[in-house]
Nucleic acid binder design. Structure first.
Lengths: 125, 125
DNA sequence: CCTTGACTTAGAGTCGACTCGAAGTTGTAG
DNA sequence: CTACAACTTCGAGTCGACTCTAAGTCAAGG
């Protein structure tokens, strides 16, 4: 049993990712997505490979990787196995960033909870 | 024993927070910090109260609270106990945001580690 | 006395990341 | 046949958050 290609329109891709259609086209323009396939009429069709890639890249963006670096990483993905070392180093660096952010969030949460405890009837600060 | 005031210059405040002196003045201008005290020559002097406040606000900013909301929160702090209810609601809302971000980070970390495992000698994707 | 350097203000400029607008094409519904 | 809705490209515009510049003040050092 061959599985059908499962191609999404830009609207569907937008709904699936939460990104606007404007943003999807913008990301393609700046090279985050390789050229997306087209229907006969020229309309975009997003494959599951495209969607997987988009999911990875949006996670990186969401966790504050600058578009410029995401761009670089996306470019390397186009270029095959020779670029794995650099991709690994980009991801490792971002991994450290992610851990740092988790720490920041934990500290922030502690401060918020401290403030909320004060607000809840105790003192006034 | 009276503890000495411990007033910092803008440079010291900058070093202590990691914010540029430009940014410190900018934050003051837009109302994140109430008017900072001045030396006789008009130079800013940051008190430990100012620094504490700055520490809280920068944590909020770091965890993606828009400046506009931080501004609102800062304004409410000026206005005393009558505004505690709204401040509580702002912080509670941001608390939920923070938890969401932690989830995003956890997911991102999982994806990064998955990719890194692939890169480390196994497959090529 | 003059220069140097840190500070002051107010306004302008920059940068990253979208977001929108104009002009044109295509497919479907009435 | 015509209207319309959704798509296309590509350049321009916006927005949030700084970041810098200009012009001026002041204190200390040579």
């Amino acid at each position: 049993m061959a599985n059908k290609p499962q191609l999404l329109t830009i609207q569907q891709a937008s709904a699936a990712t939460g990104l606007s259609v404007h943003t999807l086209r913008y990301y393609e323009r700046i090279g985050l997505l390789r050229q997306i396939g087209r229907a006969e009429n020229g309309h975009r069709r997003y494959s599951s490979v495209d969607m997987d890639r988009l999911k990875l890249l949006t996670k990186l963006i969401l966790t504050k990787m600058p578009l410029e670096k995401v761009q670089r990483y996306a470019l390397l993905m186009e270029q095959g196995d020779a670029t794995i070392a650099e991709r690994e180093s980009i991801l490792s660096a971002h991994r450290a960033e992610v851990l740092q952010q988790m720490d920041d969030l934990r500290e922030t949460l502690a401060i918020i909870d401290y403030k909320l405890a004060i607000y809840k009837g105790k003192a006034t600060t």
